[in-house]
Design a protein around this nucleic acid. Structure first.
Lengths: 352, 352
DNA sequence: CACCTTTTAGTAATCGATTTCTATTTTTAA
DNA sequence: TTAAAAATAGAAATCGATTACTAAAAGGTG
């Protein structure tokens, strides 16, 4: 275990005090004779000095560090968000502790606790825990929190919402306007507010256009996500599609609650020899990076993941820097991304 | 700015000293009367004490933190690795600083410096910088480093290699054994040792099976990756496929240097009405999570990303914990993942 | 020139823990 | 019964920085 030079070593070598060394090396505007200033810098460079931020942190009580808690970094939606967060954090001098909760409330709580111990100044969280007490307690303790992805009722923090209901509505309306009437829904379990909202949007749109709701066309996963399970959404899509195809009358379109699941749907349809979009149209939700890469490229609802990450981080750091005092609630709007997985029944009818 | 209770507050309340409080609360095996021990614990719970790790770190010089530097977390190969790293780190009590270098040597250097300032105990790095001096200097300064993905010549650290040459060889050989003779290669620029190795593997296999090398079938990107650019590989695949298709005679198979690029290749082939694998077979490299999700599912070479992350982290922490003293070099072996994007010319010939 | 202000730099306290000493008290062994 | 060993706990030093305070020197003003 080697010992690194400290400001004490530099002070000794430059024949001055630690106070002055600190002033010079931490770019304080406290006046120091330029001659001495240069001498200290020279010595610092000579001994290859690298400041120990732990020492500084203890005194200044500013770790310049934030924590990010997400379900899993391998989900491209979250990895884009994390990239956005990290890009902003770096540009503003902050570092990021990354935490994958694997959708486990226990893990999430453990992380919350250790992040707090490590003196993070702020938190960006996609919370899964039904128990908001811990998160609330942290807010009490003067920890700035920005919640995203999942709305947390009654939490005194800034939140970034996405209009999931509207997204679900727009997606369904889009299919309706393309002439579809038999529109199936494939969804992950309705265990989260966001998913329930998407589902509601689907129902609202059907109602609004006077289309009868056919329960046999609605496939919602019952199997819960297992911690540490990978490719859950994809397999879900496959499974639910199989179920759906068992119903006698095929739908002309399927609205899938997220793109990863939509990949599973398309995979299974393809396996069963059903063409997308000729026989069944597929509409996704999220617009992850891969959605444009598959064949056919997926028509979907855009959730601005990378931008959301940047927004969340800027918001948090603005609060930390005191630029914003009040909590902020931001509602992001969905946008349809038009690609090739949805067939326009109207125009294809005209051709015939 | 609220002030949190410290061991000093607890000592006062429990009518004892900070030394004893510290002994009790940090689970030291220093003997403390069980009566007093309980009293301290009770008081700590009462005031809702949460230890300040910065204070501990300063004294013990152990941050229980490691840094991870990768090009970009949105690349599924790296996100899987990071997940593996983080899962192990957490289970062993460590936290992870995540850093996206965006393949910028400047950013990488900046991160290296700030991570060191933040007193990380170890580093897991996929280095991009051609200048190994800084990394080397950090090794000098008693920082444990595990390098992966990119071999770093002459760096005194543990390294996790992947046998890229063999992977390239196996992929090409696989295509040859399926009866292919006109095998194209599509690759990102040969600016990294790993890519050069894959390329060599391709050439070696052709030579070994006495197949003449046709330069018109070899498409290597000239355009460099731009920092912060997204979906680079995908677009590269599209572009290079267009170039390839300009050569008069179509190949029967394409070997693509990574799966993301292969997605671009398949996308462009599809757009041009060329069926995969009936008209052209596509072989990938990496086996990212999405490779099984596209149509047709991609036959590819497995790089064990998640396992690699776990391995790298366990290796690093074993070194930090003193379980391993010597540097370790691990060479991971490629494995062919057989899916549906490659046609067996032999057996399909038999059918005709 | 005397007084006040500004500049400059060092001393020492401080942040919140851990840990080395030192000093009791209790237990064990002879 | 007494000396040595073990158990117990507090005082104070320490980790590496920052910063409040103090103080000397330099500069300005009437």
């Amino acid at each position: 275990m080697k010992k690194h030079p400290t400001i004490y070593d530099i002070a000794k070598k430059a024949d001055t005090s630690t106070a002055t060394v600190s002033r010079v090396l931490s770019n304080s505007d406290y006046p120091v004779r330029s001659e001495l200033r240069e001498k200290i810098k020279k010595v610092a460079k000579e001994v290859n000095y690298i400041p120990n931020m732990i020492g500084r942190q203890l005194k200044t009580n500013n770790s310049m560090t934030i924590g990010v808690i997400i379900p899993s970094i391998t989900n491209p939606f979250y990895s884009s968000i994390v990239l956005g967060i990290e890009d902003i954090a770096r540009s503003r001098g902050y570092h990021v502790f990354l935490c994958n909760s694997h959708r486990s409330p226990q893990l999430e709580e453990e992380y919350l606790k250790t992040l707090f111990e490590k003196q993070v100044k702020g938190l960006i969280v996609s919370s899964i825990s039904p128990d908001k007490n811990l998160l609330g307690a942290l807010v009490q303790k003067d920890l700035n929190i920005v919640a995203f992805d999942q709305t947390i009722e009654g939490l005194n923090s800034s939140q970034i919402h996405f209009d999931y209901r509207k997204g679900g509505y727009m997606a369904t309306e889009y299919l309706i306007k393309k002439g579809h009437r038999k529109i199936a829904l494939i969804s992950s379990p309705l265990t989260r507010p966001s998913r329930i909202s998407v589902y509601k949007g689907y129902l609202n749109a059907l109602e609004n256009y006077n289309i009868e709701i056919d329960k046999s066309l609605i496939q919602i996963a019952s199997r819960e996500y297992e911690e540490f399970e990978r490719s859950y959404e994809f397999r879900n899509g496959i499974e639910l599609t199989r179920n759906l195809l068992k119903c006698s009358e095929l739908p002309t379109a399927v609205f899938v609650c997220n793109d990863m699941t939509a990949f599973g749907v398309m995979n299974e349809l393809n396996k069963q020899g059903i063409n997308v979009p000729e026989q069944i149209s597929v509409m996704g939700f999220d617009n992850i990076e891969f959605s444009e890469m598959i064949t056919p490229p997926l028509t979907t609802v855009q959730q601005p993941d990378y931008e959301m990450g940047k927004l969340a981080c800027n918001l948090l750091l603005d609060q930390l820097d005191g630029k914003i005092v009040e909590n902020v609630d931001i509602m992001l709007q969905p946008r349809i991304v038009n690609r090739s997985s949805v067939l326009d029944l109207e125009s294809s009818l005209l051709k015939n």
